[in-house]
Every structure is written in C-alpha cells, then in structure tokens.
Design a protein around this nucleic acid. Structure first.
Lengths: 199, 199
DNA sequence: CGATTATTTTAATCCGGATTAAAATTTTTG
DNA sequence: CAAAAATTTTAATCCGGATTAAAATAATCG
C-alpha cells in the first residue's frame, strides 16, 4: 500500500497551506488575514482548511513552529562543520539571514505569540529560549578559545538575533537586496566580536 | 476662558489612553486586545474611547506615530550636542535603547502596519524611512571624517536598527536587565563601526 | 445658580469572520 | 468496478467585539 504516498500527499498540502498562511500573515498582518484569504491562495474554500488544522490559532502556531525549526536547523548546520567558534558563528549568520529572506521568514517576527493558547505559547517560547542558549554557548566557547573578544554574551546574543530577526521588516522580496544582505550581514554582525588584536 | 486647561485635560486623558493601549497591544497582541481591555485599564467603558479616537485603527496608528516620534527625538537629541559622528551615534544608541525599554517601546514593533488605512500606513512608513535615512547620513558622515570604518551604510543601519527595535521582544520589564542593556548596547553595536586602526 | 459644554454610560445594533455539520465529490483500494 | 476512505464544498450558525445613538452625569462658565 502507498502509505508513504498518502502521508506525503496530506503533508505536502499542509505545507503548502502553511506557506500560504505565512505569506498572508506577512503581507496583511494577522488580524488582517482571514482564513478565506489563505484558502484563496490554494484555490480552496475556507472551510477546507479545517481538514488540516483545528482552528486559526493552530495555523499561526504551526507557522511559528516551522520558523523556530528553521532557525534551529540553521544553527545546527553552521556548527556541524567545525572550525573556530567565530567561523561557525559567521556561517550561522549567513544561513539565518538566508532563511529570514525567504518565505516563512517574515512569520519569525512572531507578533501573535500572546494570543496562542498557553500550551503552544510555552512551547514556542521554550524553543526560542533554547535557540538563544545555544547561540550564547557558542559565544562563550569563542571567548574561551580566544577567537571572540570577551563580552556580555546574553546581550550580544540578543543584539545579533534582533538584527537578524528584523530583516523581514525592511526586506520586501527584492532579490538584489537579498544578495546585499548575505554579502554584508555576516561581516557587519561579526566584526564587533573579533578581539582587538586579531584584526 | 481656560482654553489651555481644557486642552490639556483632554490631551492628558488621550495620552493615558495611548499608554494603556500600548501596554495591552504588547501584552496581549493586537488581535488579542479589545477596546474593553484598554478602557478597563483606565476605569472607563469601551464606548468612552470613541470620544478620543475615531476607531481602533486610529488607536494603533497613534501608538505607532508616538513611537516614531520618540525614535526621531532620540536621534535629534543625540546629534544636537556635537562630537564625532561615532560619539553622536553612541549617544543615540543609548537614548534609543532607553526608549525601547520604556512604556511605548513595545509597540515600536509595529506588526499591524499592514492593517492601517492607506493614509496612515504611508505616513508611518514615511517617518520610518526618514529616520533610517538620517541615521545612514550620520554613518556616512562618520566614514568621511574617519571616525567610522567604511561599510554598507544601508545594511549597517538596518542591522543596528533591528538590534534596537527587537529589544522589547526579550525585555519584559526587569529593571536589572534594563540597566544591563544600557550598559552594553552602545558598546556592542558601535564596536563593529570603529576603524581597525583606532582600537 | 442656571445654562452650556465636556465626558461617560447604557443599551442597541451590526457585522465579518471563525467555526460546524452534513452533503457532495474525488481518490484510493481490493 | 464497487466499496471505503480522503478531501472539499455548501450552507448554516454563532459570536465577540467594534461601532453607534441617545441619554445621563459631571464639569465649567457667565
């Protein structure tokens, strides 16, 4: 039996749905997008969405979950290859910027976290904290090995994350701009980390 | 007649209202806050808000307008005193962070811009662009005078703004953290700007 | 104080979008 | 192909929160 095929048909549609939702939430804001808007992009009726998702809240939640996962994956990929902590961070900056420039990026702003149901909200916040913690650990590692200048890792992490996460606010899909971002952000965000001596 | 007194009574209430609204939008998200929530904080009925504002859209708009104005004022104050461009930028970083840590800051995220009416949306976006432009001009000035290392001013400005504007996302009112931010952000965000020679 | 203006409340209305249930259609499977 | 499962639609319902109008209360002024 085509178990995998069935599975994937459902999952693929669901994924299309999430991407459509992310696009809408970004363009029109959360309160500004109706389920009809999202369904429209898929050539479906609003009611059809309920086959994939319990309600609108779950739709946002899944978008946020996916954004969190993509961020996590970027950090993991960047650190997997080795090199100094500074080098790994620079790879991460590039990967994360890349993801923020893409489709689901905008939803990463996660402005509607407060209106998620408690359980979902806590999960998203937990994932977010875990991500920050991993990044800060990487900074600490760099400081220990000397590839990064001593600093307040918490605050430095927050600053860098902010710069990355803010990208969707001013990037509106122009591929030229996207290229500029990828070319400049790793430098901009890591230059301040380099110890005074090793310039 | 006590024209000024009347004026100020109205304005003061209106200002209280905006602060209450900002607090709500931040804590509960835009779609999550009803006019009743905002009115409740003021000991009023929801209908009373309509004496001060045409509708909910105008309420958000005014919050955004105020946030934009505070940002503008921070930059103006910081640049008024003179010094090298780098020094002025560092003063600005401190002032802007200070404002982001305060009451109306959180609304500065401005996630509901898409659902503003065209006229309001365009005004807010214009103010935002003007602010960026002024900051970039300051960067350019620093590069010319040599207090700042050559860089892509557009991207550098975006990165710094992002780091600042993201503050409300992770700052939740703890005054200790606020102190840490003010102590570290100007350094963190300006260290990367300093030319390699003048460390 | 009486009158006028400012502010707020009460009590409806209104409305769009979320949600649901049942029916119709399409796809899969044996 | 027929039956079963999966997917989507149609057609209501439902509901909370925005908005409004008129009335009530409070403040101010001459």
């Amino acid at each position: 039996m085509a178990r995998t095929a069935e599975e994937s048909r459902f999952s693929l549609q669901k994924d299309r749905m999430l991407r459509a939702a992310a696009r809408c939430f970004n363009q029109k804001g959360f309160s500004g997008t109706s389920l009809k808007d999202v369904a429209g992009q898929l050539g479906l009726t609003d009611a059809a969405l309920y086959y994939y998702v319990r309600n609108k809240e779950e739709l946002v939640y899944l978008c946020y979950l996916k954004a969190a996962e993509l961020g996590r994956a970027a950090l993991e990929t960047a650190t997997a290859e080795g090199g100094t902590a500074l080098e790994r961070i620079r790879r991460y900056l590039h990967l994360h910027a890349e993801f923020m420039l893409g489709e689901p990026g905008p939803v990463a702003i996660m402005s509607e976290i407060p209106s998620l149901k408690t359980e979902h909200r806590e999960e998203i916040l937990r994932l977010s904290r875990e991500h920050s913690a991993r990044f800060e650990a990487l900074l600490r590692e760099g400081i220990d090995e000397g590839s990064i200048a001593p600093c307040d890792v918490r605050m430095t992490g927050n600053a860098i994350m902010g710069a990355l996460n803010w990208i969707p606010k001013w990037h509106h899909g122009d591929p030229d701009v996207a290229r500029q971002v990828l070319a400049s952000f790793p430098d901009i965000l890591s230059r301040g980390l380099v110890p005074a001596g090793s310039r």
